[in-house]
Design a protein around this nucleic acid. Structure first.
Lengths: 149, 149
DNA sequence: TCGAATTCCAATCATTTTACTTGGAATTAA
DNA sequence: TTAATTCCAAGTAAAATGATTGGAATTCGA
């Protein structure tokens, strides 16, 4: 029941962008280096985030990526859903387009998956990148003296 | 972020055993038929559950499996942890034996995974097989007229 | 104007995991 | 004694994962 690297790397990358929010475009290469991720792999992840409208890109030299919105407007749920697909531990409770099941109305295991899914959604939708920035400072980091992520 | 069939089939099988609790040993074949699971595959899952002490077995003809404890004593969390391994969306927050990470103390993405994990644990540890039996009746099923699971 | 830095795009690939299947030995009720 | 069952160990095809490879398009700065 683990998240793939997509979700994990993706959140790290988005948090990295949050830390540099307002500094102009941040190159993918620098993110990949700080986060110790293969840059070509991260490229694929950030392409999804861009197509979904969570980040903006600037092409060419000195180009890079920026958050498309304020850190307070982007939730962990937004990011995970783009990279991992709709939440739900079972196809029959997938957000948006749950798989058909003959006896969904009478299925009690489905009730369980639904409860778990609701709980996960509530958590991820309640955490914004701004919350993470706040936590980051509480933990004892700061922008000038980054322990990194 | 989906559960594998292990967890999903396993919970169905355990709920099936709950429905037949007190009826003596239930053959794996009959469980597999009702739940539409490959019986040889289910055998592997139930072997794990048996080794973990969640079910008891009776060998030989008319043998089968039974819950090792009352439905009110077995939680969804017990079952999922056996079949899917320790809970945790990232290795660095795995229950029991989290993977080492240099900067775990300063890692704010880790804080996020931890919150999600705590939330999932609370849900799965709060639901017993007895709760599922109760839900099952509320939904409109009963033992004599089973719509099945 | 040119070249370096960058994003963008498409394909390929090795490894691991998943979801089984196969085959048979051991046990026991009838 | 035989049929029904649990128990055990391997093998396997398909999918997913986590990349790598190669190169085209764009743009800043010298």
């Amino acid at each position: 029941m683990k998240l793939s690297t997509k979700g994990r790397y993706g959140l790290k990358a988005m948090f990295d962008l949050s830390l540099h929010n307002g500094d102009g475009p941040i190159s993918l290469k620098s993110i990949a280096e700080r986060q110790k991720i293969s840059d070509h792999y991260l490229e694929q992840l950030i392409a999804s985030l861009r197509k979904a409208g969570l980040v903006k890109s600037v092409r060419g030299a000195q180009g890079g990526y920026m958050l498309a919105d304020a850190p307070s407007k982007i939730t962990v749920g937004d990011i995970i859903r783009i990279l991992e697909g709709p939440l739900g531990l079972s196809d029959c409770v997938l957000e948006g387009d749950p798989a058909d099941c003959d006896n969904a109305n009478y299925c009690v295991t489905r009730v369980v998956w639904k409860k778990i899914q609701t709980s996960i959604s509530e958590v991820v939708d309640s955490i914004t990148l701004q919350d993470m920035l706040d936590d980051y400072e509480k933990i004892g980091n700061n922008k000038e003296n980054m322990y990194y992520i």
